[in-house]
C-alpha cells in the first residue's frame, strides 16, 4: 500500500461564527486506493476535529455522504482519489441550505418525499393470513429500478430546475411516486397524481437528464419523470376530450 499527500479544499461554514462560507485547504496523507470520504476521515482524526459532515456505511447504500466534489454531486464514499488530479474541492450539496460545513438542511426533501405518498396503497386489501400478493418477475421489473433510490439527493443538487424553482417536487420524490404507481399491487395513482401532476410536480421538469447522470444507483429518475408526463397527458386527454372514458 502506498500513501501520498493529497490537497483538499473544503468548504467551511459555521453559523455561530461565520458570516459567510469560506474554503479551507488541507494537505493530508492518504492511500491511493482510498475514497474522498477516507480523506475527510483522516483530516478529522489527525488534523481538524471540527470539520463536520455526514457519513455511515462506506458502501454507497446509506445515502449520507452526498457532496459536491470538484463541482459534481457525488457520494464521498464512492469518489476515488485516484480519479482526481490536483486540488480536490469539496462542498456541500448544491441547492440545499448549509447547516454547517458539508452538512446540509434536507427538510425540503423530506417534506416533498412524504407529500407524494411513497407507500403502497393496496389495490385489493387482504389480510396477512391469506399470504403474499403474487407478482411475476416481469411485474417486479417494471418498478424495481425505482426502488433503488437511496435518498442521497444528488439528483436535486444536479437538477437545474430545482435550483431555479425550489417548489419543484424534484426527481427522487417523483420517481418514488412512479415506483408505487407502477407496482402491480398498488391502486394509489389517483391520490399521488394530485401532488405530482401539478405545475410544481412533473411539469417543472425540462428533461435535462442531469438527475439520471449523477444517480449512483442507476435509478434513472429522468425516465420516471418522462413516463409520468406521458401518463398525465393521457389522463388530461381522457378527461377533457373523452370524458366518457374512465381513467
Amino acid at each position: 500500500m502506498s500513501e501520498r499527500v493529497y490537497q483538499l479544499e473544503v468548504l467551511r461554514y459555521h453559523p455561530e461564527t461565520d458570516s459567510e462560507p469560506h474554503f479551507q485547504r488541507y494537505s493530508v496523507s492518504c492511500e491511493e486506493e482510498w475514497v474522498v470520504l477516507d480523506a475527510l476521515n483522516r483530516i478529522k482524526e489527525t488534523i481538524d476535529p471540527t470539520l463536520s459532515y455526514r457519513w455511515s456505511c462506506h458502501m454507497a447504500v446509506c445515502g449520507s455522504c452526498g457532496m459536491m466534489i470538484n463541482g459534481e454531486p457525488m457520494l464521498a464514499c464512492k469518489s476515488f482519489l485516484r480519479d482526481y488530479q490536483g486540488v480536490i474541492r469539496v462542498e456541500p450539496l448544491a441547492h440545499f441550505p448549509i447547516e454547517r460545513d458539508l452538512v446540509t438542511v434536507i427538510d425540503d426533501f423530506m417534506d416533498k418525499f412524504k407529500r407524494v405518498k411513497p407507500y403502497l396503497i393496496p389495490k385489493h386489501e387482504k389480510p396477512v393470513s391469506e399470504g403474499e400478493y403474487l407478482q411475476s418477475p416481469a411485474q417486479l421489473k417494471k418498478f424495481k429500478q425505482y426502488t433503488m433510490c437511496i435518498n442521497c439527493m444528488l439528483c436535486y443538487a444536479a437538477c437545474p430546475e430545482y435550483g431555479l424553482i425550489p417548489k419543484f417536487l424534484g426527481p427522487a420524490a417523483i420517481s418514488m411516486a412512479h415506483r408505487y404507481n407502477q407496482d402491480s399491487r398498488d391502486g394509489g395513482r389517483d391520490e399521488r397524481q394530485e401532488e405530482i401532476a401539478t405545475t410544481e410536480g412533473v411539469w417543472e421538469c425540462s428533461f435535462v437528464g442531469a438527475c439520471s447522470e449523477v444517480c449512483p444507483e442507476h435509478v434513472d429518475p429522468a425516465s420516471a419523470l418522462q413516463q409520468v408526463k406521458i401518463k398525465s397527458t393521457v389522463d388530461w386527454y381522457k378527461e377533457h376530450l373523452m370524458p366518457w372514458v374512465k381513467k
Binding site: Y119, L120, P122, V128, G131, E132, S136, Q139, R185
Partner: peptide
C-alpha cells in the same frame, strides 16, 4: 413468515419465482 408477508403487503420488492410467489 407473518412478518415477512406483512412487509410484502407494504410493498417490499422481494425477488420472485416465475409463478409470482416469493
Amino acid at each position: 413468515p407473518k412478518e415477512l408477508t406483512q412487509l410484502e403487503h407494504w410493498g417490499c420488492p422481494w425477488s420472485r419465482e416465475a409463478n409470482g410467489s416469493v
